[in-house]
Design a protein around this nucleic acid. Structure first.
Lengths: 211, 211
DNA sequence: TGCCGATGTAATCGGCTGACGACTTGACGA
DNA sequence: TCGTCAAGTCGTCAGCCGATTACATCGGCA
């Protein structure tokens, strides 16, 4: 399954034109991380074992403990975002709901994106460790960024409501496979999401009573 | 223990989680089911073992297999709704969102209600069995009932969007414990939920294009 | 060249799990 | 009184898990 294990055209020096890359600690570590993200995205956090990760990475299971110390530490590092995401801060507010929706539901996204997505984290929230990771990721990577673009005093709550909606949609469509949700066209979904999110992100209308 | 001259048959299904109920097959079976629901509601579906259920029920672990045949069969029966719920069909549409929200977030609800709630089912969707149960439960117990009260051709999709929102809120507030969501007052939440759900349940506005 | 640390491997340990079979206990009827 | 059978108990098996240890091997450096 490891697509990069057979072709040693990676960084560093490449004095070996042929032959498998052996005894490369950094590459092995990265292969374990990559395999962990792949399995997390495919099977969920709670269904990942160190033996599966090692096998998928073409490495020995004991190396998980040499390089990460514990299974938890491996998962924590695998669930970290690989690169900062500026979607929320750069997308126009009017296009933001469907942009976020599209990204949350994209099944072809890279494994590291899917592994650390909100719905994957919520689905694997069986341990306090995963719960705290999910809490921090949603807060730092979603809530504060979106809340910063909203007006009003309860901007943070409204931002989390957007997160809740996206998480719920992703769960019902991608995991449970509810009929209408799984069969719906993405644009059709986006229309409804737009209308649901609008009251949260639009500035308070003067004509609408606050009660 | 020959002191009692007459043994009245009064302790049939007394809700006593403790007490040496001996040689009562129906009661033991029910105790196992009740304990399973309690543990599912507390720890999630995937964290329930037959030994834990038996211990919580004050029964022997082997009895799980005598009365249910397998762990799966026990869980399937434990996740069935104990009584039909007419909340969706009887509550006025205008009050429905906050009524459903209150019920989804009530931490004092009976164990069987919490065990078979949408968020619990979604959180334990690690196996295809649980996924199919969640699919059926949401469809029969929520989607069709709510969709039946909505107008328009995509009523089922809009009903599932309500389910997605409630599921997401319940997950973020009850499991992850996101800051704003966990700290928000329920009435404050209900105001936003009302505004989010309104575009889904209100009859199509004449001024809005259907495309 | 020969050493030695870094890298990788195999085997194993203790624990928990679902599942099963053999056994014991108790109640009830002939 | 005693046989029978359901109800409940006990011990165990096989598998997977995280984690650890002892050992094998490669490769750079003196």
């Amino acid at each position: 399954m490891a697509a990069e294990a057979a072709v040693p055209v990676d960084e560093d020096e490449a004095p070996l034109p042929l032959g498998p890359r052996r005894r490369d600690a950094a590459a092995t570590r990265e292969a374990l991380l990559s395999a962990a993200r792949e399995l997390i995205a495919r099977d969920g956090i709670s269904d990942v074992s160190t033996r599966d990760v090692a096998a998928a990475a073409g490495a020995n299971q004991a190396l998980v403990y040499r390089y990460f110390g514990s299974k938890e530490a491996l998962l924590v590092e695998a669930l970290q975002p690989t690169e900062p995401d500026s979607t929320i801060s750069e997308t126009p507010l009017a296009e933001l709901p469907r942009t976020l929706l599209r990204r949350a539901l994209d099944p072809d996204a890279p494994a590291d994106v899917r592994a650390s997505s909100m719905s994957t984290l919520v689905a694997g929230a069986g341990t306090e460790l995963v719960r705290s990771i999910a809490r921090d990721r949603i807060h730092a990577g979603f809530t504060t960024q979106l809340a910063g673009r909203l007006d009003g005093d309860d901007a943070e709550l409204r931002a989390e409501l957007v997160a809740a909606l996206l998480t719920g949609i992703s769960s019902l469509r991608g995991q449970i496979g509810t009929r209408a949700m799984a069969g719906a066209d993405l644009d059709e979904l986006a229309i409804h999401v737009d209308r649901m999110v609008a009251p949260l992100i639009e500035p308070a209308l003067p004509g609408t009573a606050t009660a």
